[in-house]
Design a protein around this nucleic acid. Structure first.
Lengths: 153, 153
DNA sequence: CGATATTATCTGTTATAACGACTATTGTCA
DNA sequence: TGACAATAGTCGTTATAACAGATAATATCG
């Protein structure tokens, strides 16, 4: 009886190396994200919101349609509308309907959004340096290359 | 006026290489997680819940205290109680209060939980092989090593 | 041109995550 | 021993994410 339970509790096969890498990737990403969230918290921004602001700054004065933002985001978000609602409430972005294609909402970063990003630029940069700088440029290039390969599938 | 806006919209400095690696890591982790969520969805399990079941299977018949589970989890979860509530509702785990230290709740994987994991073992393994196998063992070892280095800080 | 498909976004609802405060139990140390 | 701190887990509340269906505008094709 006890032997049977012990057999049951054993997985069919030991975890594969691919599985271990999967777990390592999740752990590393979470480890990095945790500090980043802490950095943003005093500014009442989530990493996702920060990401959107960065994308919009990159888009320049022309702004971007919702679905273009969604395409560029780091992690997918099925609820762009309300994500933008929150940013608009805090005057970090502005929205306006397109003239040509009236389905499209054009989103632009607002003055306050730019100011906030600017205020964060240095601390974000130095956080990432603290988190990853110890690897050295050579290893970082290697890591970037390998992560790129992971996604190229 | 327009020139001023253009200046404002430009970040203080271009993104550092460390920042790029940070983003790559988040993207790669999300990319891997997405497929995994799809695989689990028909079984009404989230990656977090699956992770807990795996941890409990690893713990064996002796089970584990809540805080021990929390320590071993891939991503932190500040709400272990309700995470376990959901698993218990579906009879995937069982809980019982410790005799010696009555503060502690001992959690064990239940028969149905073991059966579910066993059912998933093969498909999880082959998913990760599909996702990562193309890198080859040498690159996977390198990647695992680098991800380990990231966390060792 | 008109029916239908597609695209872009929004909204209602439910589930989960995050944040704090709270209770119960045990450990520590004067 | 007895006050106080530390630990383990729970619960109330709010915020966000996920899912599914709805709405409006445009594109396509016979």
């Amino acid at each position: 009886m006890i032997q049977k339970l012990k057999d049951e509790i054993r997985p069919a096969r030991p975890a594969s190396f691919e599985q271990e890498v999967f777990v390592s990737a999740q752990r590393a990403a979470d480890f990095l994200l945790r500090d980043f969230e802490e950095l943003l918290k005093p500014h009442h921004l989530s990493p996702t919101q920060y990401n959107v602001l960065r994308i919009l700054r990159g888009a320049g004065t022309g702004g971007m349609a919702c679905h273009e933002i969604a395409e560029r985001m780091i992690t997918r978000d099925p609820d762009m509308t309300r994500l933008l609602d929150r940013l608009e409430e805090h005057d970090l972005i502005s929205r306006s309907r397109e003239k040509q294609d009236r389905r499209v909402i054009r989103v632009r970063i607002a003055h306050d959004g730019l100011a906030l990003l600017r205020q964060l630029d240095d601390s974000v940069r130095s956080l990432h340096r603290r988190q990853l700088g110890h690897l050295g440029e050579k290893r970082l290039r290697l890591l970037a290359k390998l992560l790129q390969l992971v996604r190229e599938h």
